[in-house]
Design a protein around this nucleic acid. Structure first.
Length: 235
DNA sequence: CCCTGATTCGC
DNA sequence: GCGAATCAGG
């Protein structure tokens, strides 16, 4: 299996989206996760939380050579039609029940109560953005977004975006349309939101409401949001 | 054990 | 350039 442009692009998108090498390999098919990692490094897009990288060791243990017998038995080239969707998804339980969320971002945007989000960066509450892969980006500390994320509670109620009709595929992504993944990679109806983005953000207004959320004061936090990649079904 | 990514190195 | 083997942390 060779690295075509499409496969490379898919690898890149998923890698940057936070999918694990195993998930990417399984999705691409015909490659091992090692191949994915190796390719990712060759593409220059490493740098992701690695369990091993935290500790830095100057004197590395000598890597003993290994013999690669030519009689390598290729383990059945993937099984393209029957991807075992058995990955348990490291993601936490999907969404918390509405009761556990005093300020649900979508359903009831109360404009005037508690305006913690209107005084964003300079105020106590830190803004934490959660990307589709589930990784966190800190706002004030180490990154200055173009503009402070809009107050989540004012955003338009989550309308069940009119997708399905024309799906936005991986290749249709550009800077102006929402990249929020819908469904799971590999599934026949996996696609991206495709709405017009909220200017300055990679997602539309609706999904910005999901991606950027003001961190609640201690004690009233809710469980982390679902992870689109590999996570539970989210739509 | 399982998982993860990083690295090496023969091909 | 590719990826299996290996390493190493969680």
């Amino acid at each position: 299996m060779s690295w075509t442009d499409e496969r490379i692009e898919k690898l890149t998108k998923m890698w940057e989206g936070g999918a694990t090498a195993s998930q990417i390999a399984e999705e691409l098919g015909g490659v091992s996760r090692n191949a994915v990692i190796g390719k990712a490094h060759r593409l220059g897009l490493k740098a992701r939380p690695s369990p091993v990288k935290a500790n830095e060791k100057p004197a590395r243990a000598p890597a003993p050579k290994k013999a690669k017998p030519a009689s390598e038995a290729p383990p059945a080239p993937a099984a393209p039609a029957a991807p075992s969707e058995a990955r348990p998804a490291p993601a936490a339980p999907a969404r918390a029940p509405a009761a556990a969320r005093p300020q649900a971002p979508a359903p009831a945007p109360e404009p005037e109560t508690e305006e913690a989000s209107d005084t964003p960066a300079s105020d106590k509450p830190r803004i934490v953005s959660v990307g589709p892969g589930g990784f966190l980006r800190q706002g004030p500390g180490d990154q200055q977004p173009p503009i402070p994320p809009a107050p989540p509670r004012r955003l338009v109620p989550a309308k069940p975006s009119p997708e399905i009709a024309d799906k936005t595929s991986l290749l249709d992504l550009n800077d102006r349309i929402c990249r929020w993944p819908m469904g799971h990679p590999g599934e026949p109806d996996f696609h991206f939101c495709g709405d017009k983005v909220n200017p300055g953000f990679p997602y539309c207004v609706e999904h910005c409401g999901r991606a950027y959320q003001a961190q609640l004061p201690r004690g009233s936090r809710r469980p982390p949001p679902p992870l689109p990649f590999g996570g539970p079904r989210v739509r």
